[in-house]
């Protein structure tokens, strides 16, 4: 039987969605991104569509932070991007961030505390164009 993990976080921010900025997708930045990625898909190099992975390069402000207190190190453990509508160069997207959940799991290598955050991208009409869920893990390494 494993002991219940002891960790702290701010529960009041869980599920609260907050606007974290507005960014216009610039043609020049997308072109440089395509060059760096070796992109050859004409959708992105000629037809003005934005590569889905580019959305994750858009840096909005940080969202609600549950301030998880556990362990001495953290890492990025997972990413899920759901694409609802194509995005084109010149569009202005607004980011809405929320901390979805915090939970612990204990296995042979000890306890890890997981934090799931969601960023929702909305277009000029307020329509959702994508969701990006990020899974961060905190754990104790060494003493």
């Amino acid at each position: 039987m494993s002991e219940e993990a002891v960790f702290e976080y701010d529960e009041s921010v869980i599920g609260v969605e907050e606007e974290v900025g507005t960014i216009t997708v610039e043609a020049e930045t997308v072109a440089r991104y395509c060059e760096l990625m070796g992109e050859t898909n004409p959708l992105y190099t000629e037809q003005g569509f934005v590569p889905p992975s580019y959305l994750q390069r858009m840096r909005f402000r940080g969202g609600p932070d549950p301030k998880v207190k556990f362990g001495n190190t953290g890492f990025h453990a997972g990413s899920r991007m759901e694409l609802l509508k194509p995005v084109k160069v010149g569009q202005t997207l607004t980011g809405w961030a929320q901390a979805k959940e915090v939970y612990a799991k204990t296995g042979r290598s000890g306890t890890m505390v997981f934090q799931v955050s969601r960023l929702t991208y909305r277009d000029e009409n307020g329509d959702e164009v994508a969701h990006s869920d990020q899974l961060m893990v905190r754990r104790q390494v060494g003493e």
Partner: peptide
């Protein structure tokens, strides 16, 4: 996105590091 070409689309990508 290379594999789906210009006529396909991606619903989601879900990856563990």
């Amino acid at each position: 996105t290379d594999w789906v070409g210009t006529g396909g689309s991606v619903d989601f990508v879900d990856v563990n590091f």
